[in-house]
């Protein structure tokens, strides 16, 4: 059964503040900007919202070369030129060469879509500014055909950012904002339980201790994240690692399968030293 309020799902543990932010943004038809450490479930959020509300998801992954126009439409002049040389009939209607972008797709979707604009900070500085009007009014103009595309329903827009660049104030003003903090112990346990319900409680307990000790190692380039924790737990279970290999004296050495948590050798080295000294903070 679908309601029009997002409540979290069986596989996505959402905190109360996140729920409020998501529902406010969707109800009012304003974009929701989500920031937070990598691996805390920013992108997954959009998937889960779409799934639980029973709405189609339109994903727009932003790259450093993405321009705002790509999301609206592109006019394929080259294809038209080629067709004109080949004498095709298509060439007389310019609409044949308008390629719809993700935003257009989301505007025309029924039921209203959830639009994910992923990693908006990857694009050029001016990218968010170029989308202001489109996200505000949920309409844009196609110059080639002189028509205005207007959203049938305001899509729920979820935007993620990793803070690589600052976003312009004018853009921020129009968004709701939520910062996903790294989950605390209780939430972590809930998350693990939601994803891996069959794991032995003792293993989870010990593994979380080790995980948090690793996160507390000073100076890590990349702290292990929730998604890495889940991968690691899956690995531990698959390899049949006994919980006591994560307890007691074993804590002074790197945990088994540490490669799932620490992704570069400097971090591994740092963690190894810190653990051996028995001092993680």
């Amino acid at each position: 059964m679908h309601t029009d309020r997002f409540q979290g799902t069986s596989t996505y543990v959402a905190t109360e503040d996140l729920l409020v932010a998501v529902n406010a943004a969707i109800t009012l038809g304003r974009p929701l900007l989500v920031k937070g450490e990598p691996g805390t479930g920013k992108t997954v959020l959009a998937h889960e919202v779409a799934r639980s509300l029973g709405r189609p998801l339109v994903e727009w992954h932003v790259k450093s070369t993405t321009k705002a126009q790509h999301g609206l439409y592109e006019y394929d002049a080259v294809a038209r030129l080629r067709d004109s040389q080949l004498g095709s009939d298509r060439v007389h209607d310019i609409r044949n060469y308008i390629v719809r972008g993700r935003l257009w797709e989301a505007f025309e979707s029924t039921p209203p879509a959830i639009l994910l604009i992923d990693e908006i900070d990857k694009a050029d500085l001016e990218f968010p500014n170029d989308l202001l009007l489109e996200l505000d009014r949920m309409e844009f103009h196609v110059y080639e055909t002189r028509e205005t595309v207007k959203a049938l329903h305001r899509p729920g827009v979820i935007i993620t950012s990793n803070d690589e660049k600052e976003l312009p104030d004018a853009f921020l003003r129009r968004c709701f904002f939520h910062y996903i903090r790294f989950p605390d112990r209780a939430t972590l346990e809930r998350i693990v339980d939601a994803h891996l319900p069959d794991l032995k409680a003792t293993l989870v307990e010990q593994a979380l201790d080790v995980f948090q000790a690793l996160r507390d190692v000073p100076g890590l380039k990349k702290k292990p994240s929730t998604s890495e924790l889940l991968d690691w737990l899956r690995l531990l279970a698959a390899e049949g690692v006994a919980p006591d290999r994560l307890a007691g004296e074993a804590r002074r050495d790197l945990p088994p399968l540490v490669g799932a948590l620490l992704k570069n050798e400097q971090d591994t080295f740092l963690a190894h030293q810190a653990l051996r000294r028995g001092r993680t903070r």
Binding site: E16, D17, V20, A21, A24, K35, F176, F177, Y179
Partner: peptide, 21 residues
Amino acid sequence: LAGLDPERFYYLARAALVKDE
């Protein structure tokens, strides 16, 4: 959207008014 819950009132205000952690 906030209902009568002070906590949700706070969360809503935060989501709407603060744009930077």
